[in-house]
């Protein structure tokens, strides 16, 4: 059942309808989609099926034409753009499919980047010491130990290592929600499992909620809940 009774809702979407600006033929409608606190939700669906659009809506990168998207009790669909950006900086950690890092920056700078935009996450980090220490701790937990790698340019890392740095960046400062867009699709099967285990461990430790999209249903067993996009969303390809 969506919105597990055990948790308070972290995300509650309702009556959402969205079309991309300039592309009116494609539309995404979601009647209802809830996520409870602490859940690890896997959204599965075919490529080009609106998964990324759904994540963009959730993270407030785009805003729906109608409907409400309550995140942590705030309807971000009603927030103006700059406030949505601030909200995202404070409460979301985002991991992309690939090309997560600024290639010319050091690993540490990449991990610390979100702190430049969020006061709350800076404060959360400051409780346990310096930001650099926290970045090093996260990198170590995610299997990238040592000072040396932290000073490397991000572009010198392997794809698997880059994804872990991206995870550290998403996790730093303990945002409430981690959103991941096929973070494992560029990894082989063995590394997928390893990456997700590390990610889950850290998310659990931080008490965060994970919403991840993938086209790969085989991963479903690792999650607390698996949602098929077809079941919650209607994709329209007709005239707007």
């Amino acid at each position: 059942m969506p919105g597990d009774a055990a948790g308070t809702p972290v995300v509650a979407m309702g009556a959402v309808r969205f079309t991309w600006p300039g592309k009116p033929r494609f539309s995404l409608s979601i009647d209802r989609f809830d996520v409870a606190k602490g859940e690890r939700v896997l959204l599965v669906g075919p490529s080009g099926g609106g998964k990324s659009t759904l994540l963009s809506l959730l993270a407030g990168i785009v805003s729906p034409q109608t409907g409400h998207i309550d995140v942590l009790g705030t309807n971000i669909a009603k927030l103006p753009g700059a406030a949505r950006d601030r909200f995202r900086a404070e409460h979301f950690g985002i991991i992309f499919q690939m090309f997560n890092l600024l290639p010319y920056g050091t690993v540490t700078d990449n991990v610390l980047l979100p702190l430049s935009f969020s006061q709350q996450r800076r404060a959360n980090v400051a409780v346990n010491g310096t930001a650099a220490d926290e970045a090093a701790r996260l990198l170590q937990r995610l299997g990238l130990p040592g000072d040396e790698i932290a000073r490397h340019r991000a572009s010198s890392l392997s794809v698997g290592q880059q994804q872990r740095v991206a995870a550290a960046r998403a996790l730093i400062g303990r945002p409430e929600i981690i959103v991941a867009d096929e973070p494992t699709s560029s990894l082989d099967r063995a590394r997928q499992k390893e990456f997700l285990d590390l990610l889950f461990e850290e998310i659990e430790a931080a008490g965060a909620t994970l919403i991840m999209v993938s086209h790969d249903e085989a991963l479903a067993g690792l999650f607390t809940r698996c949602v098929r996009l077809d079941d919650i969303a209607k994709i329209g390809w007709g005239a707007a």
Binding site: I61, I94, F96, F99
Partner: peptide
Amino acid sequence: RREMAILRSVGARPA
């Protein structure tokens, strides 16, 4: 574009 998307994802404002 990658740079922009990453900056936007961590909460950088359009400004």
